[in-house]
């Protein structure tokens, strides 16, 4: 019984990681850059939820405000910080992304201070059945994530813009020859990634209400790990990697002997998987084009 509870907890944490990992992997696949400021979008979303919860007190409105603000922020960051660097060396883009990450963290600290804010989204209680005791928020997180990820898969596979995203990720030049506006597709990608990050922030605050300016830092790194484990650039890979990291984390935290080493174990998995499969679990070997 205890194991099923742990597993559900792991699945819910994992789906939160998966939501973040999707942002990393989609941006990497399409803009070919690692957006290390992605984790901090979660934190900004968290503060938007905090502000609107304080003002209105409705968690759904808070989530909506966070999603809208994060989408606008994500698009703005891309336009101001990353777009001028298109074609520059990957290292320049990487450093810029790290700079944006610190900018967001420091701005949040200047505005909101460094003391944690308590964001009580809603006390949903526990669900008890068949000897199981499951916090309702884990089920909400899991349910919402599954719906969002299914929707994302359908979007990518069956809409014109979704297919254009696949085309751009495979061959930017050929995509332009089809009449696809690559910059427009990159904007859409940043918008989707940022919206998913806002959702992730909401799920994280449901689980633990303490909000600081580094809320997104560690989950960001773990989700990035998950994206690499699953195969960076692959959407199903990000989902698989996220769930894997979440479940491992949940199980490890319940075993007293190894609980303290949970983070180390997760990164160890990354190393082992990269040794065995350098492209990640679902990553494809791409023919490099000249």
């Amino acid at each position: 019984m205890k194991f099923i509870e742990t597993l559900l907890n792991g699945l819910s944490m994992g789906s939160t990681y998966a939501m973040i990992a999707l942002g990393y992997t989609m941006v990497y696949g399409i803009a070919k850059m690692l957006n290390f400021a992605h984790g901090d979008i979660i934190m900004v979303g968290g503060y938007m939820i905090f502000l609107s919860m304080t003002a209105v007190g409705n968690p759904v409105l808070g989530l909506a405000a966070a999603v809208i603000f994060c989408v606008v922020l994500g698009i703005t960051i891309e336009k101001i910080a990353y777009k001028p660097l298109r074609g520059a060396s990957p290292l320049a883009v990487l450093i810029t992304a790290i700079g944006v990450s610190y900018l967001l963290q420091s701005s949040a600290q200047m505005i909101f201070g460094s003391a944690p804010k308590m964001v009580i989204i809603a006390d949903l209680g526990n669900l008890e059945f068949a000897g199981l005791k499951v916090p309702v928020y884990t089920l909400v997180t899991l349910g919402c994530s599954v719906v969002i990820m299914l929707a994302l898969n359908l979007f990518v596979k069956y809409t014109k813009i979704g297919r254009a995203m696949i085309a751009v990720s495979e061959d930017k030049g050929a995509a332009q020859l089809m009449g696809i506006n690559v910059n427009g597709i990159i904007t859409v990608t940043f918008a989707i990634g940022s919206a998913l990050a806002a959702f992730a922030g909401f799920f994280m605050l449901m689980k633990s209400p303490s909000l600081t300016n580094t809320l997104g830092a560690m989950p960001g790194i773990k989700a990035f790990t998950a994206a690499v484990i699953g195969g960076i650039g692959s959407i199903p890979g990000a989902m698989v990697g996220g769930i894997l990291i979440g479940v491992v984390e949940a199980i490890s935290l319940t075993v007293p002997a190894i609980a303290a080493y949970t983070d180390a174990i997760e990164f160890l998995i990354l190393i082992v998987i990269l040794l065995v499969r350098p492209t990640g679990i679902l990553g494809k070997k791409r023919r490099e084009k000249v």
Partner: peptide, 26 residues
């Protein structure tokens, strides 16, 4: 204007049908 690029550059991960759909993007 359209171009068939050197080396064809069809979208390897898309189906034949989806490649043609991409061609009709405009």
């Amino acid at each position: 204007m359209a171009q068939v690029p050197e080396g064809r550059r069809v979208f390897q991960e898309l189906t034949v049908y989806e490649n043609l759909l991409m061609g009709g993007f405009s």
